Simulated assay, not measured.
Amino acid sequence: MQTEDVASLTRRPDAAYPPARRRVIAIVASLAASLTLFRLELLKRLASAGHDVIAFAPEDDPRVEQALAEIGVRFIRIPMARTGLNPLEDIRTFWSLRQHFKRVKPDMIIPYTMKPIIYAGIAARTLGIKERCFLVTGLGHVFSEVGGRSFKALAIRHLCVRLYRMAFRRATVVFVYNDADAEDIRRYHMLPDAVSPTMVHGSGVDLEHFAFAQPTGGGPVFLMVARLLRDKGVVEYIEAARIVRRSFPDARFQLLGHFDSNPTAISREDINDWISEGILDYLGTTDDVRPYLVACNVFVLPSYYREGIPRSILEALATGRPVITTDLPGCRDTVEPGVNGMTVKPLDVMALADAMALFARDPDLSESMGRRSRELAEKKFDVHMINRVLLAGMGLTD
């Protein structure tokens, strides 16, 4: 199934799926919260179709467990270090998954993000689990243009390629979010040459939950929502904000996101310094980003991380906000430059500042481009439409 298949499917969120053989399905994630933030509608569909759905992830998160239980999905905690290359930790993850799979006997596994794909994929292969469906939400920073070309970086990339090949061997389907990931899968022969990855437009967004809202009046309010990592472009956002404030002192620059253990993490001291400087409104973290999207005029994500398709941008599109982001795989798939936003070169602070200044100079631009953002979300990123593509590719419709 190719990208154009998405547009041919009905978008009605209440359309029933045809019955499929009942299966035990294991969903494997690297972050428990992502199960409800990014996969809730898919999990609902699987459970409501009568499948026995079991979610695996690290961390104890009572709110996630409760939300999953309410839709009939079981949760099992596994050991997993989301970042880092400690082989002992990764072996522990692999062995834990293999032991759990032996016990619950899934008919199908659906892992997403790098470590779940690799270790759940290989564990399932060793147990003869034939239905293995992979969601490549991004191949990982090691495959990015800024991932580095040092001997260490290239060696890590080579190792990851070999592990991906082992996980993907005889896969039922491999979904990708953007052309760059599909091309890398082909370039590094992660799949047999005769097998192509299946394109989907990200994890999708619930267009009813993220309803369109007119931008508020007043001075421009720019909002960035992301994990607090340098790779997400936080520093460039701050530097561009300094430049824009010289000409537009009423402009506000907001940042919403949680601190991270990643080596490229932004520190609390950095955030406090920017607040003290008067350049940043740090909004902390939230379980509901909608009020912050409604209160902003423009959404900004200057990421140079190897994104799949950023969910934060999809939520901004659905709310009806123009987007400024980088001309990189995944990010650029959400913007038609000059129509619903702007793309800039990664790490280019002046280009980012110029794009933000354009909206500060012309307040009406936020409203007109924001409407086009909503239209794009309805056309390409409806979560119910995307889930139909996923379920068809997994063979879960008859």
Score class of each variant (00 low, 15 high):
337 P>G: 03
334 T>C: 07
327 D>L: 15
340 N>D: 11
332 R>P: 05
314 L>A: 09
326 T>G: 08
332 R>I: 10
315 E>D: 06
324 I>C: 04
309 I>F: 01
313 I>F: 07
325 T>Y: 02
318 A>S: 15
319 T>Q: 11
319 T>E: 07
340 N>A: 11
329 P>W: 00
331 C>Y: 11
326 T>A: 14
336 E>D: 08
311 R>G: 14
316 A>L: 09
326 T>F: 08
333 D>Q: 01
342 M>L: 02
325 T>D: 01
326 T>C: 05
308 G>P: 13
333 D>H: 01
336 E>W: 01
341 G>C: 01
320 G>H: 08
308 G>C: 13
309 I>H: 02
335 V>Q: 00
339 V>A: 14
311 R>Q: 15
311 R>C: 12
313 I>V: 14
317 L>Y: 05
329 P>M: 06
338 G>Y: 12
313 I>T: 15
317 L>H: 02
315 E>H: 06
330 G>H: 13
309 I>A: 00
316 A>G: 12
326 T>L: 07
314 L>M: 14
333 D>R: 00
334 T>H: 00
336 E>I: 05
337 P>E: 05
323 V>R: 08
338 G>H: 14
336 E>A: 04
334 T>L: 00
339 V>E: 12
325 T>M: 02
320 G>F: 07
324 I>L: 04
320 G>Q: 13
314 L>T: 08
338 G>L: 15
337 P>F: 10
322 P>A: 11
335 V>P: 03
312 S>W: 07
313 I>A: 08
308 G>V: 12
333 D>S: 04
341 G>M: 00
309 I>L: 05
335 V>Y: 00
312 S>M: 07
320 G>A: 15
318 A>F: 13
317 L>K: 05
333 D>G: 07
341 G>K: 04
327 D>E: 14
331 C>I: 09
328 L>E: 15
311 R>F: 05
313 I>N: 03
341 G>W: 03
319 T>P: 12
335 V>L: 07
340 N>F: 10
323 V>K: 05
319 T>Y: 12
333 D>I: 00
330 G>R: 02
322 P>T: 09
334 T>F: 01
318 A>D: 04
341 G>E: 00
